[in-house]
């Protein structure tokens, strides 16, 4: 039985097809040994031991005393709790997640951000550090100057603060959060990004920053040195009430400084294409794997645009199969 590989709409030659099929079969056989037969689709009943008592979690419902799935996914059991982990779905926020969003609206004392959730997230003016680094009450003047901080369509990195009565709130109370510039934003399915200790990465050998947002938004951009603002601010802090509109006052010298070198831009594109390949193949996206693919493309001396071709896609699948099976042996 031959079925098109989901989401991969590339013109594959006959040999490439066979190779891809083989790599995917290897991946399948590797995962079958781990958890077999745990997948369910909508309205499948989940077998549970009722005598022990059952706690029904997300993605399950009760039907005549039976536990049934309400989404397609994988059944997970933690003690008494039974829930279904949905694969392809929108982002489900958890407190403390690092997310990347796009500003859709500047409203009263808040920005509204699109973060691939069922509602827009709210970032309050009061729950973010001011660019001048001063801790104080936010005044009406600050509110009027909100567009100096973020405008519509800006890409912003923030942390999930929690649910309030009017929706999901974010916060950006650190130097590492804030507006992202000079790079690319990629959107992948959120299930491909795993929650980890570290979501901000600096790839020193390429001079780029990589932020893996838990909501499936991934930022690849030029590395920006986190500078200590407190020192600098003492000097040019003439009027803390007014934020300088920086747009018009950029001197030539500063423009020179903000110029991204061709080398860096190429690496940004290379990393972005690596993530695109992973996303079309549906492989997990982590720093290690992205680095591996960038190295693979560099060692093959591949052009950046060729990374999206069918040959590289097959190579990545083969390499991933190899990597996973060697990981398995080590254990």
């Amino acid at each position: 039985m031959e079925r098109e590989v989901r989401g991969i709409q590339l013109p594959l030659s006959q040999t490439q097809k066979v190779r891809l099929q083989k790599a995917l079969e290897q991946l399948q056989s590797l995962s079958l040994k781990v958890n077999f037969d745990a997948s369910v689709v909508v309205a499948d009943s989940i077998s549970v031991n009722h005598e022990d008592g059952v706690l029904k979690g997300h993605g399950t419902a009760d039907l005549n005393g039976e536990v049934v799935a309400t989404v397609c996914g994988v059944v997970e059991r933690v003690n008494k709790l039974v829930y279904v982990r949905a694969l392809r779905s929108r982002y489900k926020p958890e407190v403390g997640d690092i997310v990347i969003g796009r500003v859709v609206e500047v409203a009263q004392k808040r920005w509204r951000l699109e973060i691939n959730y069922s509602q827009d997230a709210v970032l309050m003016l009061s729950s973010m550090n001011m660019p001048d680094g001063v801790q104080r009450r936010r005044t009406a003047v600050d509110e009027l100057n909100m567009r100096c901080i973020f405008e519509e369509n800006d890409v912003v990195c923030a942390e999930v603060r929690g649910f309030q009565h009017d929706g999901l709130h974010l916060q950006a109370r650190s130097r590492k959060y804030g507006k992202l510039t000079r790079g690319q934003l990629l959107r992948v399915s959120p299930y491909l990004v795993k929650r980890q200790k570290q979501h901000f990465h600096h790839l020193e050998e390429f001079g780029i920053d990589l932020i893996l947002g838990c909501n499936g938004f991934i930022w690849v951009g030029e590395h920006i040195e986190a500078k200590d603002d407190m020192v600098e601010d003492q000097v040019n802090q003439s009027d803390p009430q007014v934020l300088l509109p920086s747009k018009n006052s950029v001197s030539l010298e500063e423009q020179e400084k903000s110029y991204t070198t061709l080398e860096t831009r190429k690496y940004i594109c290379r990393a972005a294409n690596a993530i695109r390949v992973l996303s079309t193949l549906g492989f997990n996206i982590t720093l290690e794997i992205i680095k591996g693919i960038i190295d693979l493309s560099l060692s093959l001396n591949l052009d950046i645009h060729d990374m999206l071709g069918s040959e590289f896609c097959v190579l990545v699948a083969e390499k991933e199969a190899e990597r996973r099976s060697s990981n398995k042996k080590k254990r």
């Binding site: 991946l27 995962s31 996973r324």
Partner: peptide
């Protein structure tokens, strides 16, 4: 439809890996 969905779910899961 069930069959198709189940196969799709399985495929997504094994491709993602752990």
């Amino acid at each position: 439809i069930r069959e198709i969905l189940l196969e799709n779910t399985n495929q997504l899961e094994y491709r993602r890996g752990v």
